[in-house]
């Protein structure tokens, strides 16, 4: 009977050695021990993103020398405390040009003049706000000083976000 008991004990010991045994550590549970708890960190970083709609084109004619366009930001998702700033620059210094000459034009934002070399943002959206917009007004005149010949004159604006 003692031999039988010893055999049972040895069998039980053999079974236990086959079970995974690990010391409890961060995030690891020891299966053979009593109730334990552990924790792991779960995180997910979400990048900032936004959608901006810029004026594709501004076209003046002899009878239409003031044109309005809108600049819009939507689905704005920024880091806390961050701002979305939109700036504008002109390829030709706010002059529409061709081989014959040039025609100057101006731009106003929400009724305010924008100097040619301005580094002021024309639209700002703060983190927490989902959207923003600005009204851009473009205007031009054919002055005697800069008499232009008939034809097409062009410039390109770059909106930097």
């Amino acid at each position: 009977m003692v031999v039988k008991m010893i055999k049972k004990l040895l069998t039980a010991a053999a079974v236990l050695t086959l079970m995974p045994m690990t010391a409890s550590a961060d995030g690891v549970i020891d299966q053979s021990a009593a109730d334990q708890s552990s924790s792991i960190s779960v995180g997910h970083y979400v990048d900032a993103s936004y959608t901006v709609t810029i004026p594709a084109s501004v076209t003046f004619t002899d009878s239409e020398k003031v044109v309005e366009r809108s600049l819009q930001a939507s689905d704005v998702f920024l880091n806390e405390g961050a701002k979305l700033n939109v700036y504008v620059s002109s390829l030709n210094g706010f002059k529409m040009t061709n081989n014959e000459g040039y025609i100057e034009y101006y731009m106003m934002v929400n009724g305010h003049d924008i100097p040619q070399d301005s580094e002021v943002a024309i639209l700002t959206v703060t983190a927490g706000d989902n959207s923003g917009w600005a009204v851009l007004r473009f205007g031009t005149e054919l002055s005697d000083e800069h008499k232009a010949y008939a034809g097409n004159y062009s410039d390109t604006l770059t909106f930097t976000v």
Partner: peptide, 23 residues
């Protein structure tokens, strides 16, 4: 380019075939 002046035209929007107004 994005900003254009078409001079010598009648000024009708029908003459402007270059660019749309949508952003």
């Amino acid at each position: 380019g994005g900003v254009e002046f078409h001079t010598g035209l009648g000024g009708s929007k029908q003459d402007d075939v270059s660019q749309p107004t949508k952003g």
